[in-house]
């Protein structure tokens, strides 16, 4: 069987492989982090830097909150043939101290989650379009 080609939904936002990471930027002036990447100006009002380094963010964090969505959202979400409810988690990254939202990895339900739980970044298929599988970052409970 031939496999569908795989593409990230957004190029340059995350790495792939066994231990994927989100890609953000770090300000050369004050050292703060941004995701999605901030490259034009620093949003810290006490910093005037316009120089940034691209950095991989820590791939684990703790749940700030979570939910499961039971109704099909409007476009531009791509639903496919049949709408499948999905779980979303907001996770605070340990080093960067920022909360990033994402769907939860396939197979995990709200019952498997709790606030404060440790999660890690994985990359999974989000939707299929014109024969290509498009991937995105998702949050997966970290094996203890």
């Amino acid at each position: 069987m031939s496999q569908s080609p795989i593409q990230p939904t957004v190029a340059g936002w995350f790495t792939d492989g066994d231990e994927p990471k989100l890609i953000g930027t770090q300000c050369r002036g004050c050292g703060t982090y941004f995701f999605p990447k901030q490259e034009l100006f620093c949003r810290n009002p006490s910093c005037t830097s316009t120089d940034f380094d691209e950095v991989e963010l820590s791939r684990t964090g703790r749940i700030w909150s979570y939910t499961k969505h039971y109704y099909a959202p409007p476009e531009p979400y791509i639903t496919g043939d049949e709408f499948e409810p999905y779980t979303i988690a907001a996770v605070e990254l340990e080093t960067e101290k920022m909360v990033i939202l994402g769907q939860v990895a396939n197979g995990f339900e709200p019952e498997d989650l709790h606030t404060g739980q440790e999660m890690e970044v994985v990359v999974e298929k989000l939707y299929e379009q014109d024969g290509t599988d498009y991937t995105v970052w998702k949050w997966k409970p970290r094996a203890s």
Binding site: P36, H69, Y71, P73, P76, I88, L126
Partner: peptide, 12 residues
């Protein structure tokens, strides 16, 4: 992007 990348609606 919040809709496209994760289906994040206001009720989310």
């Amino acid at each position: 992007l919040r809709f496209r990348l994760m289906g994040c609606t206001n009720p989310t």
